[in-house]
Computed example of a mutant assay.
Amino acid sequence: MTAAPLAPPASAAQADAPSVVVLDHGSGNVRSVVRALEAAGARVDLTADREKALAADGLVVPGVGAFAATMAQILAVGGDRIIERRLAGGRPVLGICVGLQVMFEAGTEHGTRADGLAQWPGEVTALQAAIVPHMGWNTVEAPAGSRLLAGIEEERFYFVHSYGVRSWDFEPLPPMPAPLVTWAEHGGDRFIAAVENGALTAAQFHPEKSGQAGARLLENWLGTLRRPVSAS
Results as ranks from 00 to 15, higher is better:
Met1Val: 13
Ala3Pro: 13
Ala3Gln: 14
Ala3His: 12
Ala7Thr: 04
Pro9His: 14
Ala12Val: 12
Asp16Ile: 10
Ala17Met: 09
Pro18Val: 00
Val20Arg: 13
Ser32Ile: 05
Glu38Gly: 04
Ala39Pro: 02
Ala40His: 03
Arg43Ser: 04
Thr47Asn: 05
Thr47Pro: 06
Glu51Thr: 15
Glu51Pro: 15
Leu54Trp: 09
Asp57Glu: 13
Gly58Leu: 00
Leu59Asn: 08
Leu59Ser: 08
Pro62Ile: 10
Ala69Asp: 15
Ala69Met: 07
Met71Pro: 14
Gly79Met: 06
Gly79Arg: 13
Asp80Leu: 11
Arg81Val: 00
Ala88Leu: 05
Gly90His: 02
Pro92Asp: 01
Pro92Arg: 01
Pro92Gln: 03
Pro92Ser: 02
Val93Glu: 06
Leu94Asn: 04
Gly95Arg: 08
Val98Phe: 01
Gly99Tyr: 12
Gly99Thr: 09
Gln101Cys: 07
Gln101Thr: 04
Phe104Leu: 05
Phe104Met: 05
Phe104Tyr: 08
Phe104Val: 04
Gly107Asn: 07
Thr108Asp: 13
Arg113His: 08
Asp115Ser: 14
Ala118Tyr: 10
Gln119Tyr: 09
Val124Pro: 00
Thr125His: 08
Leu127Cys: 12
Gln128Ile: 05
Ala130Thr: 14
Ile131Glu: 15
Pro133Ile: 13
Met135Glu: 11
Val140Pro: 00
Pro143Ser: 09
Ala144Gln: 14
Ala144Lys: 09
Ser146Met: 06
Gly151Lys: 01
Phe159Gln: 04
Val160Arg: 11
Ser162Ala: 13
Asp169Ile: 07
Glu171Asp: 14
Pro175Gln: 00
Pro175Arg: 00
Pro177Met: 15
Leu180Ala: 10
Thr182Asp: 05
Trp183Met: 14
His186Cys: 13
Gly188Ala: 11
Ala193Arg: 02
Val195Lys: 05
Val195Cys: 13
Glu196Trp: 05
Glu196Asn: 14
Asn197Asp: 15
Asn197Ser: 15
Ala199Val: 09
Ala199Ile: 08
Ala202Gly: 13
His206Trp: 11
His206Ser: 08
His206Pro: 06
Pro207Lys: 03
Glu208Ser: 06
Gly214Gln: 03
Ala215Cys: 00
Arg216Lys: 12
Leu218Lys: 06
Leu222Cys: 01
Thr224Ser: 12
Thr224Phe: 02
Arg226Leu: 01
